[in-house]
Design a protein around this nucleic acid. Structure first.
Length: 293
DNA sequence: CGTCCAGGTCTAC
DNA sequence: GGTAGACCTGGACGC
Protein backbone atom coordinates (compact mmCIF):
# COMPACT_ATOMS: atom_id res chain seq x y z
CA UNK A 1 0.00 0.00 0.00
CA UNK A 2 1.32 3.38 -0.93
CA UNK A 3 1.90 6.09 1.58
CA UNK A 4 -1.22 8.13 2.33
CA UNK A 5 -1.31 11.82 1.60
CA UNK A 6 -1.98 12.35 5.28
CA UNK A 7 -3.62 10.60 8.21
CA UNK A 8 -6.23 12.19 10.44
CA UNK A 9 -6.60 11.08 14.08
CA UNK A 10 -10.16 9.92 14.73
CA UNK A 11 -10.78 11.69 18.00
CA UNK A 12 -13.40 14.27 18.84
CA UNK A 13 -12.73 17.52 20.66
CA UNK A 14 -13.40 15.82 24.00
CA UNK A 15 -11.03 12.97 23.23
CA UNK A 16 -13.95 10.68 22.46
CA UNK A 17 -13.57 7.99 19.77
CA UNK A 18 -14.89 8.55 16.26
CA UNK A 19 -16.31 5.59 14.33
CA UNK A 20 -15.43 6.35 10.71
CA UNK A 21 -17.88 3.91 9.11
CA UNK A 22 -20.71 5.16 11.33
CA UNK A 23 -19.88 8.75 10.47
CA UNK A 24 -19.72 8.17 6.73
CA UNK A 25 -23.01 6.27 6.84
CA UNK A 26 -24.68 8.56 9.34
CA UNK A 27 -27.52 9.83 7.14
CA UNK A 28 -28.75 9.70 3.57
CA UNK A 29 -27.48 13.08 2.43
CA UNK A 30 -23.94 11.87 3.13
CA UNK A 31 -24.16 9.59 0.10
CA UNK A 32 -25.24 12.29 -2.36
CA UNK A 33 -22.83 13.80 -4.92
CA UNK A 34 -20.13 15.01 -4.80
CA UNK A 35 -19.69 12.23 -2.22
CA UNK A 36 -19.30 8.66 -3.41
CA UNK A 37 -19.68 6.28 -0.54
CA UNK A 38 -18.61 2.66 -0.50
CA UNK A 39 -18.82 1.05 2.91
CA UNK A 40 -16.16 2.66 5.07
CA UNK A 41 -14.56 4.59 2.21
CA UNK A 42 -15.57 8.01 0.98
CA UNK A 43 -14.44 9.51 -2.29
CA UNK A 44 -15.28 13.18 -2.55
CA UNK A 45 -14.43 16.02 -4.86
CA UNK A 46 -13.85 19.28 -3.02
CA UNK A 47 -13.78 22.84 -4.28
CA UNK A 48 -10.49 24.38 -3.23
CA UNK A 49 -10.93 27.92 -4.49
CA UNK A 50 -10.74 29.87 -7.75
CA UNK A 51 -12.89 27.32 -9.55
CA UNK A 52 -10.50 24.46 -8.84
CA UNK A 53 -11.35 21.10 -7.29
CA UNK A 54 -9.54 18.05 -5.91
CA UNK A 55 -10.75 14.48 -5.58
CA UNK A 56 -9.64 12.63 -2.45
CA UNK A 57 -10.54 9.43 -0.67
CA UNK A 58 -11.03 8.98 3.05
CA UNK A 59 -10.66 5.44 4.36
CA UNK A 60 -9.61 3.55 7.49
CA UNK A 61 -5.91 4.13 8.14
CA UNK A 62 -3.63 2.92 10.85
CA UNK A 63 -5.37 2.25 14.15
CA UNK A 64 -7.50 5.20 15.23
CA UNK A 65 -6.83 7.17 12.06
CA UNK A 66 -8.41 7.88 8.73
CA UNK A 67 -6.10 7.95 5.75
CA UNK A 68 -6.49 10.50 3.01
CA UNK A 69 -5.34 9.76 -0.51
CA UNK A 70 -5.47 11.83 -3.63
CA UNK A 71 -3.73 14.30 -5.86
CA UNK A 72 -4.00 17.27 -3.55
CA UNK A 73 -2.13 19.28 -0.97
CA UNK A 74 -2.96 18.12 2.53
CA UNK A 75 -3.30 21.72 3.61
CA UNK A 76 -6.12 22.48 1.21
CA UNK A 77 -8.24 19.40 1.90
CA UNK A 78 -7.63 18.39 5.53
CA UNK A 79 -9.47 21.37 7.07
CA UNK A 80 -12.48 20.60 4.87
CA UNK A 81 -12.42 16.91 5.74
CA UNK A 82 -12.11 17.69 9.45
CA UNK A 83 -15.16 19.91 9.14
CA UNK A 84 -17.08 17.20 7.31
CA UNK A 85 -16.21 14.70 10.05
CA UNK A 86 -17.03 17.33 12.71
CA UNK A 87 -13.83 16.52 14.57
CA UNK A 88 -14.02 19.81 16.44
CA UNK A 89 -17.33 18.77 17.99
CA UNK A 90 -17.33 17.27 21.46
CA UNK A 91 -19.84 14.45 21.80
CA UNK A 92 -18.67 13.29 25.21
CA UNK A 93 -21.60 14.94 27.07
CA UNK A 94 -23.97 13.01 24.83
CA UNK A 95 -22.13 9.75 25.43
CA UNK A 96 -22.36 10.31 29.18
CA UNK A 97 -26.16 10.17 28.92
CA UNK A 98 -26.27 7.48 26.24
CA UNK A 99 -24.23 5.17 28.44
CA UNK A 100 -27.13 5.07 30.87
CA UNK A 101 -29.72 4.21 28.20
CA UNK A 102 -30.01 0.50 27.32
CA UNK A 103 -31.23 1.39 23.83
CA UNK A 104 -28.32 3.67 23.02
CA UNK A 105 -25.32 2.65 25.10
CA UNK A 106 -23.89 0.98 21.99
CA UNK A 107 -23.34 4.44 20.51
CA UNK A 108 -20.59 5.49 22.91
CA UNK A 109 -18.04 3.63 20.79
CA UNK A 110 -18.03 6.54 18.34
CA UNK A 111 -21.43 6.73 16.66
CA UNK A 112 -23.40 9.94 16.39
CA UNK A 113 -21.13 12.12 14.32
CA UNK A 114 -23.22 13.30 11.41
CA UNK A 115 -21.20 13.77 8.26
CA UNK A 116 -21.69 17.26 6.92
CA UNK A 117 -20.87 18.81 3.58
CA UNK A 118 -17.95 21.08 2.82
CA UNK A 119 -20.18 24.15 3.14
CA UNK A 120 -23.42 24.96 4.89
CA UNK A 121 -24.81 26.18 1.57
CA UNK A 122 -24.34 22.71 0.12
CA UNK A 123 -26.15 21.10 3.03
CA UNK A 124 -29.08 23.52 2.82
CA UNK A 125 -29.44 22.99 -0.92
CA UNK A 126 -29.31 19.22 -0.56
CA UNK A 127 -31.84 19.30 2.25
CA UNK A 128 -34.28 21.33 0.13
CA UNK A 129 -33.80 18.67 -2.52
CA UNK A 130 -35.01 16.01 -0.08
CA UNK A 131 -38.33 17.70 0.55
CA UNK A 132 -41.60 16.33 -0.76
CA UNK A 133 -40.11 13.88 -3.21
CA UNK A 134 -38.86 10.32 -3.32
CA UNK A 135 -35.16 9.69 -2.77
CA UNK A 136 -34.69 9.16 -6.49
CA UNK A 137 -35.73 12.75 -7.04
CA UNK A 138 -33.19 13.99 -4.52
CA UNK A 139 -30.47 12.04 -6.28
CA UNK A 140 -31.56 13.36 -9.68
CA UNK A 141 -31.50 17.00 -8.56
CA UNK A 142 -28.21 16.93 -6.67
CA UNK A 143 -26.50 14.87 -9.35
CA UNK A 144 -27.50 17.43 -11.96
CA UNK A 145 -26.21 20.33 -9.85
CA UNK A 146 -22.83 18.69 -9.35
CA UNK A 147 -22.29 17.10 -12.75
CA UNK A 148 -23.44 20.15 -14.73
CA UNK A 149 -22.39 23.08 -12.57
CA UNK A 150 -19.64 21.88 -10.24
CA UNK A 151 -15.96 22.77 -10.66
CA UNK A 152 -13.91 19.98 -12.21
CA UNK A 153 -11.04 18.09 -10.64
CA UNK A 154 -8.27 16.62 -12.75
CA UNK A 155 -9.68 13.09 -12.58
CA UNK A 156 -13.01 14.22 -14.00
CA UNK A 157 -14.92 14.42 -10.72
CA UNK A 158 -16.79 17.55 -9.85
CA UNK A 159 -17.30 19.36 -6.57
CA UNK A 160 -20.54 20.97 -5.43
CA UNK A 161 -21.15 24.23 -7.30
CA UNK A 162 -20.70 27.58 -5.62
CA UNK A 163 -23.66 29.78 -4.77
CA UNK A 164 -22.46 32.24 -7.42
CA UNK A 165 -22.53 29.66 -10.18
CA UNK A 166 -25.92 28.37 -9.08
CA UNK A 167 -27.25 31.93 -8.98
CA UNK A 168 -26.13 32.75 -12.51
CA UNK A 169 -27.59 29.53 -13.90
CA UNK A 170 -30.92 30.20 -15.60
CA UNK A 171 -34.23 28.77 -14.47
CA UNK A 172 -34.39 26.48 -17.48
CA UNK A 173 -31.59 24.40 -16.00
CA UNK A 174 -33.46 23.89 -12.75
CA UNK A 175 -36.67 23.12 -14.58
CA UNK A 176 -35.48 20.98 -17.51
CA UNK A 177 -32.19 19.44 -16.38
CA UNK A 178 -32.38 19.14 -12.60
CA UNK A 179 -36.17 18.76 -12.91
CA UNK A 180 -36.48 20.42 -9.53
CA UNK A 181 -40.03 21.55 -10.17
CA UNK A 182 -41.25 24.24 -7.80
CA UNK A 183 -37.98 23.94 -5.85
CA UNK A 184 -36.08 25.52 -8.72
CA UNK A 185 -36.93 29.13 -7.81
CA UNK A 186 -36.19 28.36 -4.15
CA UNK A 187 -32.72 27.06 -4.98
CA UNK A 188 -31.97 29.89 -7.34
CA UNK A 189 -33.05 32.65 -4.98
CA UNK A 190 -31.20 31.03 -2.08
CA UNK A 191 -28.06 30.88 -4.23
CA UNK A 192 -28.46 34.52 -5.26
CA UNK A 193 -28.98 35.66 -1.72
CA UNK A 194 -25.89 33.78 -0.53
CA UNK A 195 -23.79 34.88 -3.50
CA UNK A 196 -24.55 38.56 -3.02
CA UNK A 197 -24.01 38.32 0.73
CA UNK A 198 -27.56 39.13 1.79
CA UNK A 199 -27.64 35.75 3.49
CA UNK A 200 -24.55 34.70 5.42
CA UNK A 201 -25.19 31.11 6.38
CA UNK A 202 -21.95 30.88 8.34
CA UNK A 203 -23.47 33.16 10.96
CA UNK A 204 -25.50 30.14 11.99
CA UNK A 205 -22.29 28.46 13.12
CA UNK A 206 -22.04 30.92 16.02
CA UNK A 207 -22.29 28.85 19.21
CA UNK A 208 -23.64 31.92 21.02
CA UNK A 209 -26.88 31.76 19.02
CA UNK A 210 -29.64 29.84 20.77
CA UNK A 211 -31.26 26.98 18.85
CA UNK A 212 -34.53 28.86 18.54
CA UNK A 213 -32.77 31.73 16.81
CA UNK A 214 -30.94 29.40 14.43
CA UNK A 215 -34.20 27.64 13.62
CA UNK A 216 -35.97 30.95 13.01
CA UNK A 217 -33.28 32.08 10.61
CA UNK A 218 -33.32 28.80 8.73
CA UNK A 219 -37.10 29.03 8.39
CA UNK A 220 -36.67 32.36 6.65
CA UNK A 221 -34.79 30.66 3.81
CA UNK A 222 -36.81 29.83 0.70
CA UNK A 223 -38.00 26.23 0.71
CA UNK A 224 -36.94 25.62 4.29
CA UNK A 225 -39.73 24.58 6.66
CA UNK A 226 -39.77 22.76 10.00
CA UNK A 227 -38.43 19.49 8.61
CA UNK A 228 -35.63 21.08 6.61
CA UNK A 229 -34.60 23.33 9.50
CA UNK A 230 -34.38 20.37 11.86
CA UNK A 231 -32.46 18.41 9.25
CA UNK A 232 -29.88 21.12 8.68
CA UNK A 233 -29.50 21.74 12.40
CA UNK A 234 -28.99 18.06 13.12
CA UNK A 235 -26.87 16.98 10.19
CA UNK A 236 -24.87 20.13 9.57
CA UNK A 237 -24.88 22.49 12.52
CA UNK A 238 -24.41 20.04 15.36
CA UNK A 239 -27.56 21.31 17.07
CA UNK A 240 -29.53 18.30 18.16
CA UNK A 241 -32.39 19.73 20.21
CA UNK A 242 -34.96 19.09 17.47
CA UNK A 243 -36.12 15.72 16.23
CA UNK A 244 -36.20 15.14 12.49
CA UNK A 245 -39.82 14.12 12.10
CA UNK A 246 -40.77 13.07 8.60
CA UNK A 247 -42.43 10.33 6.59
CA UNK A 248 -39.50 7.98 7.17
CA UNK A 249 -38.58 8.68 10.79
CA UNK A 250 -42.11 8.57 12.21
CA UNK A 251 -43.08 5.05 11.06
CA UNK A 252 -39.56 3.76 11.63
CA UNK A 253 -39.70 4.85 15.25
CA UNK A 254 -43.11 3.25 15.70
CA UNK A 255 -41.78 -0.03 14.29
CA UNK A 256 -38.57 -0.10 16.34
CA UNK A 257 -40.34 0.90 19.53
CA UNK A 258 -42.85 -1.90 19.01
CA UNK A 259 -45.85 0.42 19.14
CA UNK A 260 -49.13 -0.91 17.77
CA UNK A 261 -50.15 2.27 16.01
CA UNK A 262 -48.76 5.63 15.03
CA UNK A 263 -47.57 7.93 17.76
CA UNK A 264 -48.00 11.65 18.16
CA UNK A 265 -44.87 13.73 17.64
CA UNK A 266 -45.10 14.89 21.23
CA UNK A 267 -45.07 11.30 22.44
CA UNK A 268 -41.90 10.59 20.50
CA UNK A 269 -40.31 13.80 21.74
CA UNK A 270 -41.08 12.77 25.32
CA UNK A 271 -39.05 9.56 24.93
CA UNK A 272 -35.91 11.53 24.12
CA UNK A 273 -36.43 14.44 26.47
CA UNK A 274 -33.82 13.07 28.89
CA UNK A 275 -31.18 13.86 26.27
CA UNK A 276 -31.93 17.57 26.45
CA UNK A 277 -29.86 19.31 23.76
CA UNK A 278 -28.97 15.91 22.26
CA UNK A 279 -32.56 14.66 21.88
CA UNK A 280 -32.48 14.77 18.10
CA UNK A 281 -29.19 12.92 17.95
CA UNK A 282 -30.47 10.21 20.29
CA UNK A 283 -33.60 9.90 18.17
CA UNK A 284 -31.60 9.60 14.96
CA UNK A 285 -29.26 6.97 16.40
CA UNK A 286 -32.21 5.00 17.72
CA UNK A 287 -33.57 4.89 14.16
CA UNK A 288 -30.31 4.13 12.36
CA UNK A 289 -28.70 1.59 14.67
CA UNK A 290 -28.86 -1.14 12.02
CA UNK A 291 -27.35 1.00 9.26
CA UNK A 292 -23.86 -0.27 10.02
CA UNK A 293 -23.04 -3.95 10.79
C1' DC B 1 -55.56 5.89 -17.20
C1' DG B 2 -56.37 8.36 -12.62
C1' DT B 3 -54.90 8.75 -7.85
C1' DC B 4 -51.65 8.80 -4.36
C1' DC B 5 -47.52 10.14 -2.23
C1' DA B 6 -42.41 10.44 -1.33
C1' DG B 7 -37.28 12.14 4.28
C1' DG B 8 -42.71 19.38 2.91
C1' DT B 9 -43.40 24.28 2.17
C1' DC B 10 -46.09 28.27 1.19
C1' DT B 11 -50.13 30.99 1.09
C1' DA B 12 -54.53 32.18 2.49
C1' DC B 13 -57.90 32.05 5.42
C1' DG C 1 -51.95 29.75 15.99
C1' DG C 2 -53.88 26.11 13.49
C1' DT C 3 -55.51 24.11 9.11
C1' DA C 4 -56.84 23.33 4.00
C1' DG C 5 -55.06 23.36 -0.98
C1' DA C 6 -51.80 23.92 -4.30
C1' DC C 7 -47.44 22.64 -5.84
C1' DC C 8 -43.19 19.97 -9.69
C1' DT C 9 -41.81 15.32 -10.40
C1' DG C 10 -41.92 10.42 -11.18
C1' DG C 11 -42.74 5.89 -9.51
C1' DA C 12 -46.21 2.74 -7.30
C1' DC C 13 -50.49 1.38 -7.21
C1' DG C 14 -55.68 0.43 -8.27
C1' DC C 15 -59.15 0.35 -11.74
Amino acid sequence: MTKPLVEIPLRGAGGEPVDLARTLNSHGVASLPPNRLDGDTLEVTLAVGRGRARTVTLAPGRRGHARVDGDANAGEVVPILRTMLRLDDDLSPFYAVAATDDDLSWAVGGAGRMLRSATLFEDVVKTICTTNCAWGGTVRMTTALVSELGPKASGGGRAFPSAAVMAETDEAFYRDVARAGYRGPYLRSLAASVAEGTTVLEELEDPELPDDEVAARLLELPGVGPYAAAHVMTTALGRYSRLILDSWTRPTYVRLAGAKRKLADKTIEQRFKRYGPYAGLAFWLYLTRDWVE
